[in-house]
Write a protein that binds this DNA or RNA. Structure first.
Length: 647
RNA sequence: GCGCCCGUAGCUCAGUCGGAUAGAGCACUAGAUUCCUAAUCUAGGGGUCAGAGGUUCGAAUCCUCUCGGGCGCGCCA
């Protein structure tokens, strides 16, 4: 039955194209039989990869500069025979925790002390003595057990402002490197119902991570794997049909394992309005000979399977497909819109049916066979996964000849790698952690390096209202839809709250806090900083003054207040933050950074007037806050959050 | 039973390729508005980094064990 349906489903998709349904229409636009959004065509070349930006590459001006000085010093040390020439060490440089230790600190002397056979502090002095002169560097000092602290000149900090206001590049962003092609799969929720808050976290995390990786120089393709195949689709079609019968006035006992959401009625209503009562059958025709539904053992599953067979008998293929496609169309359209309103877009919607139809699954099985990782037992085809780090062997093709879900996963993985991606990232819910070993084993069995796939687990979300945990259960259909959360707390707040914690931490989502438009809500705190800056420029207009950026740039040396130095210090960190955030797959780093940047700004705002009489100082300060505005808005955009003009 | 994630201030969490005196928000206390938005700012108290051992110049961070919490272990999808 399944086999037959899949075949017809393939045809049906083309049928739908002629009906001009937006989601299915995407089918025909592309080769490889993939779903691809419009955006894909705008941003990607034929080979399927984004075009590299032309901006020149630059990581962090200040940090790189000091690192370069250290490298020079090390070379001198080697020349002076104080260090073995065999030592290859990239300088260890990190931000200090407080300005009293300068901007940067290096533990190089501590690390090298043993090899140089010198006390750390003495070695530190030797390193300092050999540092090339630099206008950016005010002074150095040896601290504690042998740290070298670097104090930057005001000029060096001010140059950050200059860099940010340059028009030819995005400060802190790195040119995309064609050698780092990444496919990032996230959400991939089964099309059996609307997205819920758990999916929302995966969506917010994945979308932010994609932006961050891109900013850090990776070519990223965002993919959504549409699991539109298999038994769950049968159950979905069945659920719609049963609701349809109810609407026709038939008495229906809804199966325990059916999909119970309100949206099933909506779909049934659509079907009925298009096709009338032509698929109406009475209770006897439906349930005669069907075994009882019960929570016990496998009863519920058997009951559903029998009902599915009955449904396809009574409805015939075309009728059955009408239900299935109405459901898929309705639900996927809903998911797409939901995500779009959430600021989450995909380059690639990948259909499992298409995967199967294109022969990719057979291709993958052949590939596994070729590498000698398959064997037959009890009539089924098994992957020798236990030899590749998984806990047990896995069935690939069942005794009944049908490929397992895992087989599709392997085929999809192979497809990704064959499309030229050298790195595949999966964002899964925490309940999928059993997949890590399995997918890595699969990669190895395909003859690939298991390191090329990376699985990131997003932990669960618990909603809290009035200090009480909001009950959620997918089984009973009582989950909280993402859409309702967005309506309640706004997309901006939801996006921020979902990524403000590390993805491997359970998230307690405080609804009252997210909703509150007060000082305690971190989203508005950051957005308010942006709105305040915009407001300053509006006031400038009202005073009939204009911002002269050139004057400001020439006068940056006037920015010597502690608040100004501190703000510039924060701005200069941005490239490092992007880099760390990308490397650690940690969007929350950006969220925390933006909060601290907003703090610096608010403190500055309270302490000093920007619209002062002196033209030079005024324009210099406007340059500084405009730079701050740019970084706030760039960082917020990376997290999918808007930058309001006023609040 | 086996495996994965986690345990840091009253609460929610940063900090984990080892680094200096362990940080932030909320809550609490006391202040700031003739001036660009008070959705703001300033100051303050609050800690056995779950516990024990190990590795070393140095451990919240790495290793081992114990305790506690969450999740997963189908020829389901």
């Amino acid at each position: 039955m399944l086999q037959a349906r899949v075949k017809v489903a393939g045809i049906c998709c083309s049928d739908l194209v002629s009906l001009n349904r937006p989601w299915h229409a995407k089918f025909q636009q592309v080769t490889f039989r993939h779903f691809v959004s419009q955006r894909f065509h705008q941003r990607f070349t034929i080979a399927g990869f984004p075009r590299a930006r032309t901006a020149r590459q630059r990581v962090s001006i200040l940090k790189e500069h000091i690192e370069e000085l250290l490298v020079q010093s090390l070379l001198h040390l080697k020349r002076d025979k104080l260090l073995s020439t065999e030592i290859e060490l990239s300088p260890q440089l990190e931000r200090t925790r407080s300005p009293e230790h300068g901007e940067f600190a290096s533990n190089l002397a501590l690390v090298l002390a043993k090899q140089a056979n010198k006390p750390p502090r003495e070695l530190a002095q030797a390193i300092i003595d050999r540092l090339p002169r630099s206008r950016q560097l005010k002074r150095t000092e040896i601290a504690g057990p042998g740290f070298i602290n670097f104090f930057m000149n005001q000029l060096a900090l001010a140059s950050t402002v200059k860099e940010i206001l340059r028009k030819d590049q995005l400060f802190g962003h790195v040119t995309q490197d064609p050698d780092h092609r990444v496919t990032l799969e996230f959400v991939s929720a089964n099309p059996t119902g609307p997205l819920h808050v758990g999916h929302g976290r995966g969506a917010a995390y994945g979308a932010s991570l994609a932006n961050i990786l891109q900013a850090a120089g990776h070519m990223v393709q965002r993919e959504y794997y549409v699991n539109d195949n298999g038994r769950q689709m049968d159950i979905l079609a069945l659920s719609v049909w049963l609701r349809y019968l109810e609407l026709c006035g038939e008495k229906v006992s809804f199966p325990i394992n059916g999909y119970r959401g309100e949206y099933i009625y909506d779909i049934a209503r659509t079907v009925r309005s298009e096709h009338g009562d032509k698929w109406r059958y009475n209770e006897l025709e439906m349930y005669e000979g069907i075994s009882a539904d019960s929570e016990k053992g496998n009863d519920a599953q058997i009951h559903v399977d029998e009902l599915i067979d009955r449904a396809s008998e009574l409805l015939g293929h075309s009728g059955y497909l009408a239900y299935l496609n109405a459901a898929l169309d309705h639900i996927l359209t809903d998911i797409r819109e939901d995500l779009e309103e959430f600021g989450v877009e995909f380059d690639h919607w990948f259909s499992e049916i298409e995967l199967e139809d294109s022969g990719a699954i057979q291709h993958a099985i052949d590939c596994l066979e070729e590498h000698g990782h398959l064997y037959i037992k009890d009539g089924a085809t098994w992957l020798r996964a236990s030899e590749l780090g998984d806990e047990k062997d896995r069935v690939i093709v069942r005794e009944n000849g049908k490929a397992t879900y895992f087989a599709s996963d392997i085929a999809y993985l192979l497809n990704k790698l064959e499309r030229g991606f050298d790195h595949a990232i999966y964002v899964f819910g925490a309940d999928h952690h059993g997949y890590i070993a399995r997918l890595k084993a699969a990669a190895q069995a395909l003859g690939k390096d298991p390191e090329c796939i990376e699985i990131l687990l997003v932990q669960f979300v618990a909603l809290f209202r009035d200090g009480e945990k909001v009950a959620m259960s997918t089984r009973s259909g009582k989950f909280i839809p993402l859409r309702r959360l967005r309506e309640e707390v706004s997309s901006d707040a939801a996006r921020y709250f979902f990524v403000m914690r590390s993805h491997d931490q359970h998230l307690d989502f405080n609804l009252d806090l997210a909703k509150s438009k007060t000082n305690e809500n971190p989203v508005y705190y950051i957005q308010y900083a942006h709105a305040r800056i915009r407001s300053v420029f509006r006031n400038l207009d009202q005073l009939d003054l204009t911002h002269n950026s050139a004057i400001g740039e020439a006068a940056l040396e006037l920015l010597t207040e502690e608040h100004e130095l501190s703000l510039m210090r924060a701005l200069s960190r941005y490239p490092e933050v992007i880099e760390i955030s990308a490397r650690q797959r940690a969007p929350h780093t950006i969220a925390h950074y933006l909060h601290s940047l907003a703090t610096e700004f608010h403190a500055y705002y309270s302490a000093h007037q920007f619209l002062v009489d002196g033209e030079n100082l005024r324009n210099a300060r406007l340059n500084l806050i405009l730079a701050t505005q740019n970084i706030l808005s760039d960082g917020l955009a990376m997290l999918g959050i808007s930058s309001p003009e006023e609040m």
